[in-house]
Design a protein around this nucleic acid. Structure first.
Length: 552
RNA sequence: GCGCCCGUAGCUCAGCGGAUAGAGCAAUUGACUACGGAUCAAUAGGCCGGGGGUUCAAAUCCCUCCGGGCGCACCA
């Protein structure tokens, strides 16, 4: 008996009562969704449906609750139903009904918790998209961890997900990068608006070994072009490699240059023009985005003839739509939140639905901290902490977990010294240890002749067992919620809660008999529960891109 | 000035209409000749930034003020 089954049964009960009382409320399963009460005295599951319905039925909430409770008490698998407080309905399952879940989970294995919220929906999730003018710095790392995890969560709901990286290889910043490489090679100081740091010299040297021709005797602008073309490829290769090391693999690396070379940018502007959203002023071409809720109109073609920043975004969006993506999500840092309105205006102008066909997830920036003091990062000064630095200092698991554990709405401090030294501060080890422990227990059980050869759910009647089963039962809904809200951190917090409940159960219920005690069905049944917990921890950690070790 | 995010235990953060607000770390005290003590139990620690409002019910929703972060270019 899981909460979904119970909700469905309760829906039938409540609907019957509403009809009998002459009510007109149309109820769905969501209306009678059960929650797990904080306090164990309040049973396994609780509903507030009576308080919600009382007003429209003109009924006393407690009386209504009692009527529902009396009917619900007859449901199969329900041990008792109580009315408490202002009208809560508290349901306690009998141990057998609750415990059956342990077997279900083991049997469903990796499939336990999967849902169909986005069954068949094509989703394009764009994240990181850092310019290839330097290594991925610590700010981009957050989106790497969160974005990849969110992609996995969408997939758990049946979504057809493409992880995409927008490769900004067109425009002034790339020119600066090229000039910086050239300057480094020539032994000149870095350009005023260019990039510094050891990696520039490193890339410049690698360009030299890769370039087959004679770089010394060609004009300077051709030299710069060589450094641009080869340097960007090298930089991009490095970025890919460090992302890969971090466990993040993109399906598509999209080059902005393609949009310009194929004429897609012009085409996108023409399309807007046909729709009447374009005007000319001051020698520039403007998108009348204020018609669609933006704060000001945006320049698409500057008076010098160059494309404005936004023009590429128009073409890119259309390109994604032409590739068939129903939902397009872009993860951006808080320093880009000003883009939301103009991109939504674009979406509306093209006749799509803002916040549905296009969705922008804004995440707060990370602060780099050293000994409690904030550290300013500067690509130019070369004081950048990179993804590789993070992995080197704390490892992939601890790094990803720490980054994905917080809501993206909150700023996080990254203190590599602290993270590197006191890694026990990171709850990832608490969760991983719980998982390792499930394997340790299973190994031990096997050695003592305890196998999953019998299952009697009614034997899972210890208090820690009913708590554990309650948490396990919530997993599918938790996953769905994480997907709906685009909040991977919920999976991490859930894993911590489950790990805690498991450790407490371990402390009071043994799987392997002690001493001369014979192996009984209670031990065999507990082994099912043990393995079920291991399975769910593994599933959850997998969605976070964190390993689930069998030994630590 | 306008916009977005945040202000919850000493620290880092969950909870975002429900019952006595939680976890980890830090602190204090206990628990292994019983499945790994990277664990568990217990204690202590909170006017959920302040003030109004909506509601049967507000940390959660609305308004306002205070404090912090980030934005508001024919730059990308």
């Amino acid at each position: 008996m899981n909460p979904a089954d119970l909700s469905a049964a309760l829906l039938t009960v409540v609907t019957g009562i509403v009809v009998r009382r002459g009510g007109t409320a149309e109820l769905t399963v969501d209306d009678v969704a059960l929650e797990r009460p904080r306090n164990r005295d309040h049973g396994d599951w609780a509903s507030n449906i009576a308080m919600k319905l009382a007003k429209s039925l003109g009924a006393n909430p407690r009386e209504l609750a009692q009527e529902i409770a009396d009917a619900a008490a007859e449901l199969e698998g329900v041990a008792s139903v109580d009315v408490a407080g202002p009208g809560f309905i508290n349901i306690t399952l009998d141990a057998a009904a609750a415990g059956a879940l342990a077997k279900t989970i083991v049997e469903q294995a990796d499939a336990y918790g999967l849902g169909d919220l986005y069954r068949g929906v094509t989703i394009n999730l764009e994240f990181v998209s850092a310019n290839p003018t330097g290594p991925i710095h610590i700010g981009g790392v957050r989106w790497a961890a969160v974005g990849d995890s969110l992609a996995r969560i969408f997939q758990s709901q049946g979504g057809i997900v493409t992880r995409e990286y927008y490769f900004n290889d067109h425009g002034a910043q790339i020119d600066r990068f090229a000039r910086s490489l050239l300057a480094s090679w020539l032994g000149e100081p870095a350009p005023e608006d260019g990039y510094g740091g050891d990696y520039i010299a490193d890339i410049a040297a690698r360009v030299l070994t890769l370039y087959p021709g004679d770089l010394f005797h060609i004009p300077r602008d051709e030299q710069q072009e060589v450094f641009r073309a080869v340097g960007v490829e090298l930089m991009f290769g490095d970025i890919k490699a460090s992302l890969h090391e971090f466990g993040v693999k993109f399906d598509v690396y999209f080059h902005e240059n393609e949009l310009h070379e194929s004429g897609a940018v012009n085409h996108a502007i023409d399309r807007l023009r046909e729709l009447g959203a374009i005007y000319e002023a001051d020698g520039a071409t403007w998108f009348r985005s204020t018609d669609y809720g933006d704060d000001k109109d945006r320049v698409l073609i500057k008076s010098d003839g160059e494309f404005g920043y936004m023009s590429g975004d128009l073409a890119y969006y259309l390109n994604k739509r032409e590739r068939g993506f129903e939902r397009n999500l872009i993860m951006l840092g808080a320093d880009h939140h000003g883009y939301v309105k103009r991109l939504m205006a674009m979406t509306a102008a093209f006749g799509d639905t803002p916040y549905v066909n296009l969705e922008i997830l804004i995440g707060q920036l990370v602060n780099l901290v050293r000994n409690g003091e904030p550290v300013r990062m500067s690509k130019r000064a070369g004081t950048v902490v990179t993804l590789e630095d993070l992995v080197e200092a704390v490892g992939v698991d601890a790094g990803r977990y720490a980054l994905v554990r917080s809501s993206i709405d909150s700023q996080v401090d990254i203190d590599l010294d602290l993270w590197g030294k006191k890694t026990n501060d990171n709850p990832v080890f608490y969760v991983q240890y719980a998982h390792a422990r499930t394997h340790s227990v299973a190994r031990n059980a096997s050695g003592s002749g305890v196998e999953r050869s019998a299952f009697d759910a009614s034997l899972l009647d210890h208090e820690t067992e009913s708590i554990l089963l309650g948490i396990l039962a919530e997993y599918p809904r938790l996953l769905r919620q994480a997907a709906e809200l685009r909040e991977p951190h919920r999976v991490a917090r859930y894993a911590e809660e489950l790990a805690g409940a498991y450790h407490r159960w371990y402390d009071s219920c043994r799987v392997t008999p002690v001493g001369d005690e014979p192996v009984g069905d209670v031990h065999r049944t507990r082994l099912w529960l043990n393995d079920a917990v291991g399975q769910v921890l593994r599933n959850g950690l997998g969605l976070l891109g964190v390993s689930a070790p069998e030994r630590m």
